[in-house]
């Protein structure tokens, strides 16, 4: 007996772009669940985890935010290999403001986010015209340049770095601040990318000539996207400065560039939610593998490869498809 796979849309009966005719609680739940789930998870996780995994959760949030920042840039046609630039600039901004001027974290974190975004935009402004791999190369190099400048000129404490930052009030504050920012950034910028403004940004990636041909200055829009991504990255840096109570050369480390890309690619690029999901899988996995000692990176790498080969579309796209469609095997009549 021959069989074939049948795919049926699970969707809602009457549906036209954004307007849904909701007929039952089931349909309401069907729409609300994917939105409520991340909120519930992010609010409950800090309560359920022990002190060690709470720290891991902080780095999950940071990697997730950096991955979202990477994804926004990638959707605008700029593949960045230097999220460490955003992270590092934000970290040094808040660190310096706290260390030299004694400003409290309540001020330094928001100011460093915006200022960091602005500085990163200005640094990359001259290379906005570069496309593809050329832009990527520049973003890869700039953090390496900055770290050597810090080392050679001994500004901001040089190799020693600046320590003794004001800590955040409590671990709970750290956890819930990071979770709240993650949720706001995830839902806010997902909404932005679905709006007409986001469509213009995606248009630049897809077919920039057609966007220019609409009389739109693509460099102005690219700069805006860069500022948004830079500010998200700078927030991470500023936040971690106050968590570690230290800022130094490691903030420009390659980890901050590579991990977010891995998270976004494994999770599913182009959705922001995929980037977040990727961070929630990869970072704890990397921690769980610590027991293997020297083999940790090997196993981590094998897992990465398995994910990418098995689900090249990304985990989020796969889940999304499964959620909206029922797949089943049916017998072919003959």
């Amino acid at each position: 007996m021959k069989k074939r796979k049948e795919r049926i849309d699970r969707g809602i009966k009457a549906r036209s772009s954004d307007i849904f005719a909701l007929l039952s609680w089931r349909e309401m739940l069907y729409l609300a669940a994917p939105r409520l789930l991340p909120v519930i998870v992010c609010l409950l996780l800090p309560l359920l985890l022990g002190p060690y995994w709470q720290k891991v959760l902080l780095s999950v949030a940071v990697v997730a935010l950096l991955a979202i920042s990477w994804d926004i840039l990638a959707q605008t046609g700029m593949v960045s290999l230097g999220q460490a630039l955003f992270f590092g600039v934000g970290a040094y901004c808040s660190g310096a403001m706290n260390h030299y001027w004694g400003l409290s974290p309540v001020l330094t974190i928001p100011i460093a986010s915006l200022l960091g975004g602005l500085i990163c935009t200005l640094i990359l402004l001259p290379v906005l015209r570069l496309r593809g791999i050329y832009f990527s190369m520049v973003t890869l190099i700039i953090p390496l340049i900055l770290v050597r400048i810090v080392e050679a000129t001994k500004i901001f404490g040089g190799t020693e770095g600046l320590s003794g930052m004001t800590p955040l009030p409590s671990t709970w504050f750290e956890l819930y601040l990071s979770m709240a920012v993650l949720l706001a950034v995830l839902f806010g910028f997902r909404r932005m990318m679905d709006s007409d403004y986001g469509l213009v940004l995606k248009g630049i990636n897809d077919n920039d000539r057609s966007v220019i041909n609409a009389g739109i200055n693509i460099y102005w829009f690219k700069a805006q996207s860069l500022f948004i991504a830079g500010a998200i990255g700078a927030f991470c840096g500023a936040f971690m400065t106050h968590v570690y109570m230290f800022v130094g050369m490691p903030v420009f480390a390659l980890d901050y560039s590579i991990l977010p890309i891995a998270a976004a690619v494994v999770g599913g690029p182009g959705t922001l939610a995929g980037a977040t999901l990727g961070a929630f899988i990869l970072v704890p996995m990397s921690e769980a593998l610590r027991g293997f000692g020297g083999l940790r990176i090997v196993l981590y790498g094998v897992f990465l490869v398995v994910f990418i080969v098995a689900l090249p579309e990304g985990i989020f796209h796969y889940i999304q498809r499964k959620y909206h469609q029922i797949e089943r095997w049916v017998e072919v009549d003959k």
């Binding site: 007409d196 469509l199 966007v211 609409a214 009389g215 739109i216």
Partner: peptide, 23 residues
Amino acid sequence: FQMVKPFYQLPAYKNMIIPLYSP
């Protein structure tokens, strides 16, 4: 353009958004 390159995954009317967003 000689080579048409729309957003293939979007509905046709959404393809009009970019020129309609023009300054």
